[in-house]
Write a protein that binds this DNA or RNA. Structure first.
Lengths: 108, 108
DNA sequence: CCCTTCGTTCGATGTTCGTGGAACATCGAA
DNA sequence: TTCGATGTTCCACGAACATCGAACGAAGGG
């Protein structure tokens, strides 16, 4: 969990949007995530976040779930997450990232 | 002073080192700065920091001085600078950046 | 005037990054 | 087993980036 990698991970609007989305501490399903990029690109962004140590991924059968590592993050960089979330809300960074209507496990 | 630009500016070790160096609030002369890069590269890094709003540059005759905008930074992103400086110290990010022996105005 | 100093700007180069499409692997369901 | 859904991986492309050396322009000192 290196500083420069974390900063680099947070230097892209879509990734900031994902972090914002996950900032409520709830675990989210991959399929729930909505971003204006191809799924390969979304996979890439999630990998960057995971490699930087910002998120954790759990695999369950054929689908996987993402979770923000708020605790570890706050232990390593006290105040950073709050600062980023605050600024991101003010500028509305990552507003293009959202959730699907269906709350994950729902049939459709 | 946009979030993603600030994060991008802080995603390079040399720039983090410069920020660390300036974090005492003292204004520093360009020539004082020591980094293992060519002067054109150093000029580039200082430009990135300035464009991101992290530093301010004052020109005086033929030489110029750099200063960290700690106040503005802390107003915009409360706690971010402290978090970055703390983590940077722990990991010793930007340790290659230092000061020349001469305290600025000295002849030599 | 020339010459030195200081910092920026200008190509040039190699690398990394964001992006999308296609192929692939995995798993559950029919 | 065959099919469909779900993510990952691979490949390719253009843009952005870090880096350097050289050329440049602005002061200031002989």
């Amino acid at each position: 969990m290196a500083l420069t990698e974390v900063m680099a991970a947070l230097s892209d609007p879509i990734r900031v949007g994902l972090v914002r989305l996950l900032s409520d501490g709830r675990e989210r399903g991959w399929g729930e995530l909505r971003a204006p990029v191809a799924k390969s690109t979304l996979s890439h962004h999630l990998r960057v976040l995971r490699d930087a140590g910002l998120t954790r991924t759990r695999q369950e059968g054929t689908r996987c779930f993402v979770e923000l590592r708020s605790g570890d993050l706050d232990a390593r960089f006290p105040g950073l997450l709050a600062a980023v979330l605050g600024a991101a809300e003010q500028e509305d960074v990552g507003h293009q990232v959202g959730l699907a209507a269906s709350p994950a496990g729902q049939r459709r």
